[in-house]
Design a protein around this nucleic acid. Structure first.
Lengths: 157, 157
DNA sequence: GTCATTGCAAAGGATTTGCAGTTCC
DNA sequence: GGAACTGCAAATCCTTTGCAATGAC
């Protein structure tokens, strides 16, 4: 997906976002990058062309784009480190409302096939599945689009 | 798995760790908790019995236990937020050496079954798989226990 | 003209580091 | 006795907030 600066400006309008040079530049770098940059990475990459750019703006822009659904944090639930002494293979369900983490031990999840498209010399040692959603208590805030929690649902980011 | 304080002390020795009251207490709380506590949670729970405990010690202890392999961070790669404008369903492979994140788009991963054992009123909206391992460049540091990157491997934490 | 966006500075919060005293082996 | 552990304080790092100036629509 190659987007020109104009394409991006269009997209912003489409999403009801104001279009500014900084914002356009940040999104442009982000959308053409596969490196999952940090806020500071983005700042460093956009800075040369926009010397007046402030890191604050990068954060602000990312939050705006995130709210609009144009950008996602790779490691959500990034509030603080949480620890687990349960070393048996298991996975997690995270409530996006209260941030609670529930353990899931489903044997069907413990035999995923190796992902395709990896560099040949990459050695995978473990994996874990993180399900996200809303617990009963937190479910009100978002109008539930998916009524059935059973079955397939799209993976995210 | 119910472990007494003595069991824990044994375990520490087994792992070559010094056994101190604070350390034992921290691990005790952690291993009997399913709430994935933060460092501060642990501090709060252990403090009453060990009024002299410092938060620093909790952090230090967690890092020691983590290195020993007795404890894991739930959200590893917790260094800083990373952003992604690729909104098509995909998953991630994270090198534990250089922390680089590689996108994986494998359709087989996009139709995982809903995990069993969830509260009935929990609504899952998305999920993602995070594979961890070592890229070609970073592979040296750890003697590779699994030589074949293809096939099944245990899930972690 | 109005309101969102930007930049700067300062605050906030989580985690790490330095160092001296203590405890375990 | 020596090394590791602990506590305290300060530092560091990432991120957020407050506020005035600017820019987009």
């Amino acid at each position: 997906m190659k987007l020109s600066l104009e394409d991006i400006q269009h997209k912003f309008r489409e999403y009801g976002l104001k279009s500014t040079p900084q914002r356009t530049a940040i999104y442009h770098v982000l959308i053409h990058s596969t490196a999952h940059p940090t806020a500071e990475d983005l700042f460093a990459q956009v800075s040369p062309a926009h010397p007046m750019l402030s890191l604050n703006t990068v954060y602000y822009t990312l939050s705006v784009l995130g709210t609009a659904g144009l950008v996602r944090e790779v490691n959500v639930g990034h509030d603080r480190a949480r620890y687990d002494a349960n070393l048996t293979p298991h996975h997690h369900v995270i409530c996006q409302g209260c941030q609670n983490i529930i353990d899931v031990m489903d044997p069907r999840l413990d035999c995923l096939a190796s992902p395709s498209g990896l560099p040949h010399d990459f050695e995978i040692t473990s994996y874990q599945v993180a399900f996200r959603g809303y617990c009963g208590t937190c479910r009100q805030p978002q109008a539930s689009t998916t009524t059935s929690p059973t079955g397939n649902y799209p993976a995210s980011s």
